[in-house]
Write a protein that binds this DNA or RNA. Structure first.
Length: 300
DNA sequence: CGATTTTGACCAGCGC
DNA sequence: GCGCTGGTCAAAATCG
């Protein structure tokens, strides 16, 4: 399966931080299982991908839950505000793409997603995906439990399916990675790979055994794939905000950062939001798009 | 129409 | 015991 690793890797020392996070989680749950924490620096690639889910691997994952993160820098209020705005009643008159973008943004802000392996029935492999508290561009994926089935044949996986989620194990020479089959355009983007850091937390493994590696990424070492800072990089780019909005592709954080047509006025409601770490992006987005477009928001 | 996502409800662990 | 929080369930909604 995947014993291989992306070869050209720098090591990033984030183990202590990762460990503390995982230990905190472990202390909450009585059943302690082996966990593999993967940090993914999302970037431009992620923004171009279908959605901003967790990094893709050879397994297929099914989301079974989502919870707001306590203590997240992206406040609970903002999270609910997004959900509120994304409700059918309010966004009914928005275009589908705008709704998608809103939903994407909301779901990626302050919540943790819970995924089960859907590759095989009965597989207990799970993973949690959340945004790093200190770096919004960083995704933290925690793999728990193990797969009880072989890794699906990579070659049989449709390439587009692979891109349902941002890649993390994208290694140019990964023997089984579908990257090999990428068109030239895609290969060029490998130069802007997301930053990935993997850490295995060996705790009391209550499960009998692991037949297969939990993640296609090797758990035995830290991995770092360098990538340009997606925020600063994209901030420098001049995007047409309207075209972004009308684009069928969900927006990424970096893309949202380009909504730079805030109005100095508007209501205090969004002014308050701007005091929050990430909500400023959102408020700008809302100001420049929702209000400018005069979307009727009629309480039912 | 099956697969997947969304989302409110529920349950259990933990701290006070 | 109570409230908070993390994790899961399951019905409804959505997607392809």
């Amino acid at each position: 399966m995947d014993g291989s690793l992306p070869p050209k890797l720098d090591t990033e020392v984030t183990e202590s931080e990762l460990k503390s996070e995982t230990e905190t989680q472990a202390s909450k749950r009585r059943k302690v299982v082996q966990k593999t924490v993967v940090r993914v620096k999302t970037g431009e690639n992620a923004g171009k991908l279908k959605n901003e889910g967790p990094p893709s691997d050879f397994w297929s994952w099914r989301k079974y839950g989502q919870k707001p993160i306590k203590g997240s820098p992206y406040p609970r209020f903002t999270f609910f505000l997004f959900n509120f705005l994304c409700s059918k009643e309010l966004v009914l008159q928005l275009s589908l793409s705008i709704r998608r973008n809103l939903k994407f943004l909301g779901s990626s802000m302050a919540c943790r997603g819970y995924y089960k392996c859907s590759t095989s029935k009965g597989c207990s492999a799970k993973k949690q995906v959340e945004r790093c508290r200190t770096d919004a561009s960083m995704l933290i994926i925690t793999y728990t439990s193990s797969h009880n089935h072989p890794c699906p044949d990579v070659h049989s996986i449709n390439l587009t399916q692979q891109f349902k989620e941002p890649e993390i194990q994208e290694s140019e020479d990964h023997p089984t990675t579908p990257k090999q089959e990428q068109p030239q355009e895609e290969k060029e983007e490998t130069q802007n790979q997301p930053t990935v850091t993997v850490t295995t937390i060996d705790e009391d493994v209550s499960e009998d055994q692991f037949h297969y590696l939990q993640s296609p990424i090797s758990c035995t070492q830290d991995i770092m794939i360098n990538q340009e800072d997606p925020f600063t990089e994209n901030l420098e780019k001049d995007h047409d905000t309207l075209s972004l909005l009308l684009d069928e592709e969900p927006l990424s954080y970096p893309n949202l950062m380009t909504f730079s047509t805030p109005k100095s006025e508007e209501n205090d409601f969004f002014d308050e939001l701007e005091e929050l770490p990430t909500s400023s992006v959102f408020s700008s987005f809302m100001r420049s798009n929702l209000f400018d477009e005069r979307i009727p928001v009629v309480p039912s």
